[in-house]
Computed example of a mutant assay.
Amino acid sequence: MAEAPKILVVLTSHATLGDTGRPTGFYLSELAHPYAVFTSQGFSVTLASPSGGAAPLDPSSVEAAATDPISQSFFDDNKSLWESTAPLEAFLGHSDDFAALFYPGGHGPMFDLAVDPVSQALIGEFAAKGKVVAAVCHGPAVFVGVKGDGGESFLAGKRVTGLSNAEEVEVGLDKAVPFLLEDRLIELVGPDGRYEKAEGNWEEKVVVDGKLITGQNPASAKGVAEAIAQAAWGA
C-alpha cells in the first residue's frame, strides 16, 4: 500500500476581533472534523501558523461545540496540536512533502493570513505544483492577495465559496471584519468565475474547482476534508 499523503494545515495567529476587544482565532469544529477525516484515512497532519507556537482558539467555537462529540473529543485530547504549531515560513520550498494545504476558518484569518506574504507564497507554490489547496468558512480569505503567474488574482475565473454576507450579518460581525468575504470573492473571481453559496444560511456547501476546494461555513468542514482526501490520494 502506498504511503499516505501528508496534509499541511495552517491556523491563524490572530487573537483579537478587530476593535471589538473580543477574542478570536480559529474555529474549533473547522479543525476537529477535518482532522477526524484525515486521520481516519491514515493521513499525516502537520499544523503551522504565521507566528508558530500556540494558535489562538476562538472561545465562542468551543461553546458552539457543546453538543458536537467530535469537536469535544478533539478539544479534550489534542490541545498539543494547536498549542505547538510550526512557523509557517519553515514550509516554504517544501511543498513536495505534502499533497494538500488546508486553512480552517474562524475570524482570525481575515486579519493575518489574508495579508500574510509567506502564506500567499506558500499557496502559490502548492498551486504551481498541482497540489490541493483548500479552505473553509473565513478560510478562503487567505486567497484574496494571492496572484497568478501573470499578476492576476489566483481566484480569477474560478468557482469558489466562503462565508456569505448574510451569515456574517446574522452573527453580528459584519462591521468587525476588514471586508465581507462574499463581496471580495465575487470581485476576485471576476466575470469568468463564480461565487456559490447554499440556499440557506449555515447549510453545507462545498465547491471543488480542480485542485481548489472551498467550503462555505462550519457545516461544510467535513465535506471539504472528504474532498481534500479524495483529491490528495490522486495528487
Score class of each variant (00 low, 15 high):
residue 139 G to N: 11
residue 47 L to K: 09
residue 150 G to F: 00
residue 108 G to R: 13
residue 47 L to T: 13
residue 204 E to G: 00
residue 200 G to W: 03
residue 129 K to D: 13
residue 90 A to D: 10
residue 28 L to I: 05
residue 234 G to C: 06
residue 99 A to Y: 09
residue 163 L to P: 01
residue 146 V to I: 03
residue 14 H to V: 07
residue 209 D to V: 06
residue 192 D to Q: 12
residue 26 F to W: 00
residue 157 G to F: 06
residue 17 L to E: 07
residue 141 A to H: 00
residue 212 L to I: 12
residue 118 V to G: 04
residue 213 I to E: 06
residue 177 V to A: 14
residue 27 Y to K: 11
residue 74 F to V: 03
residue 116 D to I: 06
residue 149 D to W: 00
residue 177 V to Y: 13
residue 141 A to C: 14
residue 149 D to F: 01
residue 123 I to L: 10
residue 49 S to E: 13
residue 227 A to Q: 05
residue 13 S to P: 09
residue 168 E to N: 11
residue 130 G to K: 08
residue 114 A to S: 15
residue 21 G to S: 11
residue 157 G to A: 02
residue 30 E to A: 05
residue 233 W to A: 10
residue 45 V to E: 07
residue 133 V to H: 11
residue 82 W to I: 00
residue 233 W to M: 14
residue 229 A to R: 06
residue 111 F to V: 04
residue 132 V to Y: 02
residue 66 A to P: 08
residue 106 G to Q: 07
residue 152 E to I: 01
residue 134 A to I: 05
residue 152 E to L: 01
residue 153 S to L: 04
residue 30 E to K: 12
residue 38 F to H: 01
residue 93 G to W: 08
residue 81 L to P: 03
residue 105 G to H: 09
residue 46 T to W: 03
residue 206 V to R: 15
residue 27 Y to A: 09
residue 137 C to D: 10
residue 56 P to M: 01
residue 102 F to W: 02
residue 56 P to A: 06
residue 118 V to A: 10
residue 188 L to P: 01
residue 39 T to F: 11
residue 134 A to C: 06
residue 128 A to G: 08
residue 193 G to F: 12
residue 229 A to S: 12
residue 19 D to H: 07
residue 59 P to F: 00
residue 131 K to L: 04
residue 64 A to S: 02
residue 157 G to Q: 10
residue 30 E to M: 12
residue 17 L to C: 04
residue 215 G to F: 06
residue 86 A to S: 10
residue 70 I to D: 02
residue 208 V to N: 05
residue 5 P to V: 14
residue 167 E to K: 07
residue 186 I to R: 15
residue 1 M to F: 12
residue 215 G to Y: 06
residue 108 G to S: 12
residue 198 A to H: 11
residue 177 V to G: 07
residue 200 G to Q: 07
residue 205 K to Y: 02
residue 48 A to Q: 14
residue 112 D to Q: 02
residue 197 K to R: 15
residue 144 V to S: 06
residue 100 A to M: 01
residue 27 Y to F: 13
residue 78 N to H: 08
residue 123 I to V: 15
residue 102 F to I: 10
residue 228 I to W: 03
residue 112 D to K: 00
residue 70 I to Q: 03
residue 10 V to S: 07
residue 66 A to N: 09
residue 46 T to L: 03
residue 199 E to S: 13
residue 232 A to R: 04
